[in-house]
């Protein structure tokens, strides 16, 4: 319950503000442009419906992870730079409760992005295969990825105590996680690429979307990748807890 108080405070201060809202307007504008291009551009509109849905899902996931990283990096280092961390630490809440409240706000932010994206997912996927099941997977895996990357970035923020450095390190992590996108299909097909794909939670999520939406494969095909993502979720929460023990004024 104490965490819920921090979560509400964060939502009021970071999400329901004019500055916070700009993110959502930009998100919807980008999704509008992408959806319109996918459906009307002479080459893109001929992509398979499942392929379009998969690409939009990847984009939404990446956006959710990216904004989660910014939230995480600001969590403690930002409070410290604004001079508000001391007041937060002397409140009756312990560090983990504060962190869970902030993590809750980051996940709420992902939830808003997901809700904004729903009409686009339905329009782009209309008449295609596996739309509903794809959206369910996006909701579950997107939430887990938001927890993983926000918690990791929050842990860095508590350790590094500099928002700029925490943000830069988090972005490097994001690029590393997104590296399968930059690798060619041939490299991804090698043993090195396969291992990199398998141990990377972001790649696991997008490969799961591919398998569910395009290849229509069942949960038994996804179980291994989902288990790895769940493992990373626990690992990131453990990292956050360890980092909080090092947090002091």
């Amino acid at each position: 319950m104490k965490s819920a108080y921090i979560m509400q405070k964060e939502i009021r201060e970071s999400i329901l503000t004019p500055k916070g809202f700009i993110w959502y307007i930009l998100t919807s504008i980008i999704l509008s442009v992408l959806s319109y291009l996918f459906l009307t551009n002479s080459e893109l509109s001929l992509l398979d419906q499942g392929q379009m849905l998969y690409l939009i899902m990847n984009f939404i996931t990446a956006l959710g992870v990216l904004i989660g990283l910014v939230f995480g990096a600001d969590a403690f280092a930002g409070e410290m730079e604004r001079g508000t961390l001391e007041a937060l630490l002397i409140s009756p809440l312990n560090k983990m409760e504060i962190a869970l409240g902030k993590l809750g706000a980051a996940v709420t932010n992902w939830g808003i992005i997901f809700v904004i994206s729903l009409p686009y997912l339905f329009v782009v996927g209309k008449g295609g295969q596996n739309v509903l099941i794809g959206i369910v997977y996006l909701a579950v895996l997107g939430t887990l990825l938001a927890v993983i990357f926000s918690a990791f970035s929050m842990g860095l923020s508590a350790r590094i105590k500099s928002m700029k450095n925490a943000l830069i390190t988090s972005f490097f992590l994001f690029l590393l996680a997104g590296s399968p996108i930059f690798l060619s299909t041939a490299i991804r097909g090698t043993w090195f690429g396969s291992i990199l794909d398998f141990i990377n939670p972001f790649a696991d999520a997008i490969n799961t979307f591919d398998s569910v939406v395009i290849d229509s494969q069942g949960f038994s095909y996804q179980a291994g990748r989902v288990a790895i993502i769940c493992g990373y979720t626990l690992l990131s929460l453990w990292f956050l807890k360890r980092s909080l023990s090092k947090l002091e004024m």
Partner: peptide, 11 residues
């Protein structure tokens, strides 16, 4: 797919 109302309306 009636994309225009969504693409213009949601933002």
């Amino acid at each position: 797919n009636n994309v225009l109302p969504i693409a213009l309306g949601e933002p």
